[in-house]
Design a protein around this nucleic acid. Structure first.
Lengths: 208, 208
DNA sequence: ATTACTTTTAACCACCTGGTTAAACCGTAT
DNA sequence: ATACGGTTTAACCAGGTGGTTAAAAGTAAT
């Protein structure tokens, strides 16, 4: 019973993910989602009252998928350098296989920025703690004088941007799918190396 | 005469920029653009036959605005280290004052990636030359063994991502407008420092 | 078989969308 | 004055939009 009940509902959610991820909120059509799920359009409204509700379900799923793993890795007991390697390895892999996700999320955050904190609460996340953890590790393990927040954003930027800019890289430099995947594969080692090299530069005292 | 003719057309284009930048192609309404420009909707169709045309005009403007300056700086005769500082300083400034632009462009590239090369041609840009130039400078001036393409993407990532992720930073870390601007201001020095520190790590021989 | 319930559908609706058309407007040269 | 060119507008349209409704189909207990 539960299987057949949720089967339709799940198929609708899966269909909604496909369509919303690719076309965004405004570009998505309820009819297209219904077709993709192989059900009547009314059934979509039956399970998710309206477009907003359905979109939010899709968005929360995507957001928590990304943020949960991030949180998990950064709160683990790994050494900071290992942590960076682990994070980038995982994120570049996951994002390059779901390359539509980050842009989808960034767009959603622009449109409804107020709901971020609600979502953080739902996933029991406290960003301040995360920064504190990074700060402590940078100081205790590496003895660096650098703003941990900039480090965190840099790690994120170097991992996420190349995925978001996929069509740019693809077309400007005429990369094939294979070449692009190789490029992402390379980044799993290049980026951690790049970051750790950068951090070494802060071992001595610095002023800015 | 020319002033009054172009006045309407320009006001329409300006209005279209505002609306498309914020709401994207699908979210934008021709009526809203007309209202924003203070003209009848038919006049929008009179000057720009249809929505696609108008959007393309807006997109080309935004794209060339960003790519032209990038090209100019990277092809200048500055030393590579100065070049990085100049580029990041300019881009962070420009983008933080036009924070909707990069996401707008990235979305456009996802939707119509095939037109990138057309646009590059229009602006007389050859990406291969750009990478060659960077490659030569990295080798001649700094004697580094590192893939110049990754360096270029890293520079771009560290400059652009924090702008694209503005609502994330704003809301996750509860930054006010002032704090956010200060954060961007800091990045003008932090990011070049970070990159140059990273590059130093490649001065000796490396293998990967 | 009947009942009571959830799931699924076809038909429908009010509204909005991009786009068209034909007429009005306006400056200017004749 | 009027005829002519580009400019601007009101009115209109076909097709699509999210969403509703009421009836049908399925399911399980009695």
């Amino acid at each position: 019973m539960e299987n057949s009940i949720s089967s339709s509902e799940e198929r609708i959610l899966d269909a909604a993910k496909k369509v919303f991820h690719c076309k965004g909120y405004d570009g998505a059509r309820m009819q297209e989602i219904a077709d993709e799920a192989g059900v009547n359009k009314s059934l979509v409204h039956y399970y998710y009252r309206n477009k907003d509700n359905l979109f939010q379900a899709v968005f929360e799923d995507a957001f928590s998928k990304l943020i949960t793993k991030l949180n998990e890795i950064f709160f683990s007991e790994l050494a900071f350098t290992t942590k960076i390697e682990t994070f980038i390895g995982y994120y570049v892999s996951f994002l390059s296989q779901n390359s539509y996700l980050p842009l989808f999320i960034l767009n959603g955050l622009y449109e409804k920025p107020e709901q971020i904190r609600t979502m953080l609460a739902k996933n029991q996340l406290l960003p301040e703690r995360l920064i504190d953890k990074i700060k402590k590790q940078i100081k205790d393990e590496l003895n660096l004088e650098i703003d941990p927040f900039h480090v965190f954003i840099n790690i994120l930027a170097l991992s996420v941007f190349p995925i978001v800019a996929k069509p740019l890289i693809e077309n400007i430099f005429g990369y094939s799918d294979e070449q692009l995947n190789q490029f992402y594969e390379e980044r799993k080692t290049v980026v951690p190396e790049f970051i750790l090299n950068a951090l070494k530069g802060y071992e001595k005292k610095h002023s800015y």
